[in-house]
Design a binder for these strands. Structure first.
Lengths: 202, 202
DNA sequence: GTTCGTGGTAATTGAATGATTACAAACCGA
DNA sequence: TCGGTTTGTAATCATTCAATTACCACGAAC
């Protein structure tokens, strides 16, 4: 990504680098489909260091889930705190929060590990963690945003569709497939370009 | 599941048994998280036989994706062919098709491999296959059901939420968690019991 | 009754992978 | 400058897994 050559870096900072790299790789390839070595290479360090920093692959992934959830909750709460929110009815609020979510999706691969985690219900430790996170988001939308259960459901549904389009890498078909273009335009709306060209960074 | 002890069974029939077992295991654990031996044990045969029957794990999974897609498309087309459909407006039609989808989800683990496939956009062969299937469903809903792109989007979004709740195994929290109960009731509606107790079969 | 196609498994293999160990080099306070 | 702590790696280990090979059993046709 952005690293220079080998330098000694404080553990806390290195930890963040690893988490960033892991978010990208896990978000793309899923939990079981990702090796700790792929994470290490993406972070520019050796594989044993990744394992030693987090204890295990599983703990690293759980850390990612927590991080993604916190990012999302912070983002939603920040959006809810904006003054113009008070004037919105439920339908408008849902759209408003939807745009906040797309922003977060467009900013990087922070939320994709969350989507990957939602497929791990069978796992005794990650599954429990992922369900808890999902329900936490649900309660935030219901209790803090004041949405009805049906509105929360629709919001979450839209989010799941966006997640699916991202993990499917549907954006790669934007230029070559008419149907994909129509679907993407319809799903991401005016924020589409946030998600189409994430190739220039830092 | 249902097999007696070792019997010689015609290949075509055995093939279906393997596909059924694979749908369940892959649907639960994902592509990378599933071993061919797990499929074999679920089907009551040896691991090499699974591999030889389909050539490779990858080909088996693609076969599953195709099968799931065909089941879904058939189900949707059958629903669309019913006479009462003509009297429905777009919103009612969307609900009607939604119930048909829930029925399919409730009947077994046919569609869960599809959901797992949607996470494999990074894979050069499965990813292409999964995207194509997704767009095929999109076109069916748009062209054959006559829904607008926005309506198709909302339908797909709802389906993705149901998929997520299933792969998260959220139904396991129905009895113990109030929030989960509310969310599940809201997402599955009157069809909820189809998905709650899938423990008695055949 | 032997041969041949079909349905199946046991044994093995080679590669991949998460984790551990042992060690080295850089930094830092005394 | 010396001793210890922190940052990091190379080498290796034990497993796991998809795939291959080599084989076996049953039945039908001749």
């Amino acid at each position: 990504m952005s690293e220079a050559k080998s330098e000694r870096i404080p553990a806390a900072e290195r930890r963040e680098q690893i988490l960033d790299a892991a978010a990208k790789v896990f978000g793309e390839r899923g939990y079981a489909g990702t090796t700790t070595d792929q994470v290490a290479q993406a972070a520019g360090i050796s594989q044993p260091y990744v394992v030693r920093m987090f204890g295990s692959k599983e703990k690293l992934f759980c850390e990612l889930l927590l991080r993604a959830r916190e990012s999302l909750e912070t983002r939603l709460r920040t959006a809810l705190a904006r003054p113009e929110v008070k004037a919105l009815d439920a339908k408008e609020l849902k759209k408003f929060l939807g745009r906040a979510y797309v922003d977060l999706v467009g900013e990087g691969d922070i939320v994709l590990p969350l989507a990957q985690g939602f497929l791990l219900g069978h796992d005794p430790v990650i599954g429990r963690y992922a369900r808890e996170g999902f329900l936490d988001i649900y309660r935030l939308l219901r209790d803090e945003a004041g949405l009805s259960p049906e509105e929360v459901r629709d919001f979450l549904a839209g989010g799941m569709l966006l997640n699916t389009l991202m993990t499917l890498q549907m954006t790669g078909l934007y230029d070559s497939d008419d149907t994909a273009r129509e679907l993407l335009g319809c799903a991401f709306g005016e924020k589409l370009d946030l998600v189409l060209k994430p190739k220039a960074a830092s």
